[in-house]
Nucleic acid binder design. Structure first.
Lengths: 113, 113
DNA sequence: GGTAATTACCTAGATCGTCAAGGTATACGG
DNA sequence: CCGTATACCTTGACGATCTAGGTAATTACC
């Protein structure tokens, strides 16, 4: 277990997926690869986490799926943000900011109080 | 549900608790209050999350408990970091840094690649 | 004197996201 | 022809958190 992907992903996967679709549709495999590339493999998305998350988000109306062909000529299911998904993305980014600022306050606190 | 405490706490509670003990023992109630105060109620620690977390961490040898008296003269169980807990705290802070940097990369990415 | 709020602890049960580990199928490179 | 990469999916278990209860002592208020 070399890069030890932490449990920190919990609750954050959605916003990462939504963000990966912000500039256009991607297929599932491409979402995972993009996230891994963008974070230099700090974030590794297991397929057993990815696909259930995609279904969940599709049920909630944040993304829409359509079958198509990948860049390499293979059958692939492309996901696109809906209007609701775009608005949800904004909310989740704001929530992440609030949260990470709060954690930073704790980790940088001096122990008084 | 006014301030909507997110699910983002997942996987982060341990490091927050460990950090709250970095300058000396606190009792459970005090840990929760300190975290809420320090983050202006952005992070709200439910007691049903807190006490199980404390037991878990005690079992793992990161913290030690001792009964004593609170500042207000009530019976209270004080938790203190062990050497293992201190080292664990350092690791978890480093993991959090890696993780939040990675998320920032994703949320700040320009969509290329 | 009664009662609400605060302090301080604890637990059982349910929920829900993630992971581990399996599976299918096609295409490409050696 | 066999391994690797691409691309999808599912089942089952795990485990952390939350909900919603409970106890008990003290303080504040009316």
């Amino acid at each position: 277990m070399a890069p030890q992907p932490t449990d920190l992903l919990q609750g954050t996967l959605d916003v990462l997926i939504l963000k990966s679709l912000a500039w256009g549709p991607r297929h599932g495999y491409g979402i995972a690869k993009w996230l891994e590339d963008t974070t230099d493999d700090t974030l590794v998305i297991e397929e057993g986490s990815l696909y259930p998350a995609l279904y969940r988000m599709e049920r909630k109306g944040w993304i829409e799926a359509e079958w198509g062909m990948s860049e390499l000529g293979r059958k692939a299911k492309f996901y696109a943000l809906t209007a609701a998904g775009r608005s949800r993305l904004r909310e989740e980014i704001a929530a992440w900011r609030r949260f990470s600022v709060a954690v930073a306050k704790v980790l940088g606190a001096d122990g008084r109080g």
